[in-house]
């Protein structure tokens, strides 16, 4: 299990680089602070607190995940420390997986810690109604964060060109977080020859669900009331936008980038 060795080394490194502590402080303040401040801004129910927290997670996790991962392997490759790792009996694929796991732990450790503290505080202060589903929120958040780390680490393994990595990270963020809905809308409009009176076909719903953020909220709508996910729920919505499809989408956002990245990584000389 060499990926474990690599992951462990990567976490050691993050600890010493203070990345881990910085994230821990930042995210604890963010989530904990929100839990405290929530009393003054809204109706003061646990469900409302969760809805707000989902918004926070959706706002910070993609960018943090990308930042943590997008230079991970390329930096080691450029400076030569990658050669020490690959002199050992471990494959490039194991190195890729280990790095992705290490960075995921670095991101999710502080995230889940902060959310747990905040959730505990909120349950005590705003009532326990709905708190039973809170672990599901943590689980979905873990998957969501892991998908962005996997995308970024895979990107860092696939090229050593600085420019490509930067463009890839920025482009990835814009595509996956900012522009996906707009692009699917444009695609449908073009396919409908700009006739806006036509109803949206069902498959567009799935195309929208492929966006990590949408899959995340769809998954959450199993345990919570999430407005953004309403169009995937209720009568008449096709089965392929059910919660398990959202789960599959997030798992695919982890597995597919890692597979593609490792094929790129294994090709050619270091």
């Amino acid at each position: 299990m060499s990926w474990r060795t690599v992951a462990r080394k990567d976490i050691h490194d993050a600890r010493r680089a203070r990345t881990l502590w910085l994230l821990l402080g930042l995210l604890s303040i963010l989530f904990g602070g929100y839990a405290v401040a929530y009393a003054t801004v809204d109706d003061g129910t646990f469900a409302g607190f969760v809805t707000g927290s989902i918004g926070l997670v959706d706002g910070v996790l993609p960018i943090l995940g990308l930042l943590l991962g997008y230079r991970s392997i390329s930096d080691d490759r450029t400076d030569g420390s990658l050669l020490l790792s690959l002199s050992l009996p471990q494959s490039r694929r194991e190195l890729l997986v280990g790095t992705a796991v290490g960075r995921t732990v670095t991101l999710l450790g502080p995230t889940l810690f902060g959310l747990s503290i905040a959730g505990l505080y909120a349950a005590l202060r705003y009532g326990k109604a709905g708190a039973i589903a809170y672990p599901w929120f943590l689980f979905a958040t873990a998957l969501y964060g892991a998908s962005f780390v996997a995308i970024a680490v895979a990107l860092s393994a696939s090229t050593t060109t600085d420019r490509r990595i930067t463009y890839g990270a920025v482009g990835g963020y814009l595509l996956l977080v900012v522009l996906w809905r707009t692009l699917t809308s444009i695609a449908v409009t073009v396919l409908h020859r700009f006739d806006t009176s036509l109803d949206l076909p069902d498959w567009v719903l799935f195309l929208q669900l492929v966006e990590p953020g949408e899959a995340y909220v769809r998954l959450l709508s199993v345990g919570f009331e999430v407005e953004r996910a309403n169009r995937y729920v209720g009568n008449g919505t096709p089965a392929f936008v059910d919660w398990w499809a959202a789960l599959a989408v997030l798992v695919a956002w982890i597995a597919v980038p890692l597979l593609v990245g490792s094929r790129q990584f294994e090709r050619g000389d270091l």
């Binding site: 490194d13 010493r16 009996p89």
Partner: peptide, 28 residues
């Protein structure tokens, strides 16, 4: 991977892991 199992290496053009101590390098 199995070819490297019984081999100790000092490669050309390596760099150490910036933030790890000597002890952590060996432990790795």
């Amino acid at each position: 991977v199995s070819a490297r199992e019984r081999v100790g290496v000092l490669p050309d053009g390596y760099s150490v892991f910036d933030r790890l101590t000597g002890r952590q390098h060996v432990a790795y």
